[in-house]
């Protein structure tokens, strides 16, 4: 059973490589864009910190760290899932989901993993380098417990990103041509690049529960600099499991409402 899925995933990777080779110029432009995109985020931080020493009790180095953790979490998610989940709305609206439902594998697996953004690997390498430079430049103390906690939170945030995008796109079973929900989710997720302390209390609660966007950048950075209590880590683990479960159940529930436009 597992072997079948493993082989299938290998084929998906091979197909994605072919696609990447077909559109080489676009891959190069995306790489260039990525550098610009990171530059833009850094410019934002520089502009903010040209007027102040800290925001919400967090200094420039810590905000840089939040941003880079957020970028890495977003990159891992984009590389593995974005091309698939972002196209879910079109699959449902045009009736192309039939193709996935008639295959002898779990539809959620196939719609989530069919395309990989191989070019994301280059970007991830660059971003890893930036993280290394950042740790060196701002003299962040590196300890094993805080590094492991940050790495765990980073992985959990990818699962939360996946679940969030899956839930958003699953609404396409009711609202057709709903693909721009991904832009909404993307805009909302950028909140995770900044300290949670800048928000009023109600927003803080919302960003840690119903709209979980504080997990990608803020929490891993807080854990890395030793400013996240152990119960916050425990909360993140439990919340991720529950949130993923809700997303998967919602998908299964919504699948029953699929009307298959093409058949």
């Amino acid at each position: 059973m597992l072997r079948k899925y493993f082989n299938l995933y290998k084929t998906c990777i091979a197909n994605s490589l072919s696609y990447e080779a077909e559109y080489r110029y676009d891959t190069l432009i995306k790489l260039f864009t990525n550098i610009l995109w990171i530059g833009m985020m850094f410019i934002t931080i520089e502009v903010i910190f040209s007027q102040t020493q800290s925001i919400g009790g967090w200094n420039k180095g810590e905000v840089y760290l939040m941003t880079v953790f957020w970028i890495i979490a977003d990159e891992i998610f984009s590389m593995l899932f974005s091309k698939n989940l972002f196209g879910l709305s079109d699959l449902i609206t045009d009736g192309d989901l039939d193709f996935y439902l008639t295959k002898p594998v779990a539809p959620l697996f196939l719609v989530s993993t069919r395309f990989l953004n191989i070019g994301g690997l280059y970007r991830l390498l660059i971003e890893g380098g930036i993280l290394g430079w950042l740790l060196w430049h701002f003299h962040f103390p590196i300890t094993l417990p805080t590094t492991l906690a940050a790495a765990l939170l980073l992985l959990l945030s990818v699962v939360i990103d996946y679940s969030r995008v899956l839930i958003g796109n699953t609404f396409s079973f009711w609202f057709l041509r709903f693909d721009n929900i991904n832009d909404v989710i993307g805009a909302l997720s950028s909140v995770g690049r900044y300290p949670l302390s800048i928000w009023p209390r109600t927003f803080k609660i919302i960003f840690l529960t119903v709209l979980p966007v504080a997990f990608s950048g803020f929490l891993p950075a807080a854990a890395f600099v030793g400013r996240a209590a152990w119960y916050l880590l425990a909360y993140a683990v439990v919340f991720t499991i529950i949130f993923f479960y809700i997303a998967a159940r919602f998908w299964n529930f919504a699948l029953r409402h699929y009307s298959s436009a093409s058949s």
Partner: peptide
């Protein structure tokens, strides 16, 4: 170019 996602993103960034 065929695919213009990268160009779109570059433009969005520069304008932002």
């Amino acid at each position: 170019l065929g695919e213009t996602t990268g160009l779109n993103q570059s433009f969005d960034l520069v304008t932002t």
